[in-house]
Design a protein around this nucleic acid. Sequence first.
RNA 1: GCCCCGGUAGCUCAGUUGGAUAGAGCAACGGACUUCUAAUCCGUAGGCCACAGGUUCGAAUCCUGUCCGGGGUACCA
Length: 547
Amino acid sequence: MSIVDVKRHIHECLSKALSSLGLETNSVRLDPSKMSELGDISSGVALSLAKSAKKPPMELAEAIQSQLKLSEDICSAVTVSKPGFLNFRITTDYLRNQLTKIVSASDNYGISESGKGQRALVEFVSANPTGPLTVGHGRQAVLGDVVARILEWNGYAVEREYYYNDAGRQMRLLGESVRARYLEIVGEKGEFPEGGYEGEYIRDIAQKIYDVKEETLKDETEVTAFRDAAEEKIFADIRSTLDRLGIHFDSFVNEQRFYDEGSIDEVVSLLREKGLVYDKEGAVWLKTTEFGKEDDTVLIKSSGEPTYRLPDTAYHRDKVERGYDLIVDIFGADHKDTYPDVIAAIGALGYKTDQIRVLIHQFVSLLRNGKKVKMSTRKATFVTLDELMEMVGVDVVRYFFIMRNRQSHLNFDIGLAEKESDENPVYYLQYAHARICNILKYAEEMGTKSGGEPDLTLIKKDEELSLIKSLIHFPETVMNALENLEPQTVAGYLQWTATEFHKFYSEHRVVTDDKELTTARLFLVSAVRTVLANGLEILGISQPEKM
RNA sequence: GCCCCGGUAGCUCAGUUGGAUAGAGCAACGGACUUCUAAUCCGUAGGCCACAGGUUCGAAUCCUGUCCGGGGUACCA
């Protein structure tokens, strides 16, 4: 029970009232009221139906109002206001009863079963091991993890997967870069590759190789040894960074696998059978024009090397074949134009693809002293996630990345990061949680019994009631988060609830000489604690008991 | 050129899918701790929602065009 049920009830009653007036019922919409003095929930049905009903909105609203038969346990005081809104107020009894539900549900409050028995796969990060994870990757990493947590909270069995390419040109370039640095160390003139990886970490890897192999690789012509060493080292670093961020993958899938299994070739021939692939100028082309693109695109270069699209297609086919009920791909804006080809190709092969949801996020712009710096792994013009966590801590990093809409281009000024961390809104949430924990601890020290049956009729102050109103929106927030997979709505909700709590706190004492009132308020604040804790848990942020 | 995303307070961003008087945080200014945590609360100030049209009872939100920023458009990933 929560606000969702209240809305459902109002919705039903409204529909009945409308049909008794001979009006259509499918334009019923309920919104949180913008005018809190008028009500908690409002509807503009009368406004939208006024034209077809050929009546002034106010008159229509009043007619609807007179036909409404709402349960008095849930709703009271239906009023009509200005242009023609219907306003509903939730009864205080209903609000008080919800507290009991929240406290007894405890850790499970807000959990939904809409994904029960279903399997979901979330693919994210998927950065190639050519360098450390940067603040740019951070956005995707946290976004993906929180999306996974939202799914879990809604009952899905979730797997987190990391896909990477280690067969392509970038990895060879990486190997060449390491070799060049190695040759520098042994005193040879190594030619640094064009467009190679310039970061200091390449030197470190070369040094590590030297420490073990000394000069024995001096005349090595193959890059394999260097590349493999680099991949191993970099991947170890990536894993430790993710670990520190609190992100744990269930599987790492490697592009090479699809070559080894032969599924790359298989995909090409299957597409060829469908007439979607042809040869031209020594290359193999995919008819993306069939999918609505202006031009066809190359699948296999004339050099014989596939473009990234091909292994991506094989990989997606593999994911689809694994039979998930939901597949979520988290991609940066650079994939915006290309993923539809991959999905269309898979669809063309006869696979079901409507279970795939692709979430595109905009990039993080890095600023130094207010000036934009192009982040490049090759040029080593990046700030690593590790550096950021070092500076501001894990919770701030996580919150920073999910508090904004993924479509927004977010500016990240490294110069301001430290300063802003002290003012990061995540502390506001955690502080509310810690305050409550402290109250509960204090009450215990004072010998106040908790667990006795509270007299909830003592909860009647404005600050108390609006606090409960925020609490009962939590399940709806979780459901909305599932629908749109937008973590930032959860963050926004928690801000609201924390505000309501802090306001309550500054107006009223919980632990006083009044035993009955104390018991009732302890009950209230423990419900608040539950909601804050559960919300922070969804975001993967710690819930400190003291700060 | 074409396609996608964005433009909201000085700064960073929300805005519940078209609702009533556009909201937070930071920065500025003024108040509130002998009390369960002042990492908090209360107040003041700050806006042509990029710009111009359109759609309707009603637009920051939808449509068209323009400007600015980001991304894509490669036998790069």
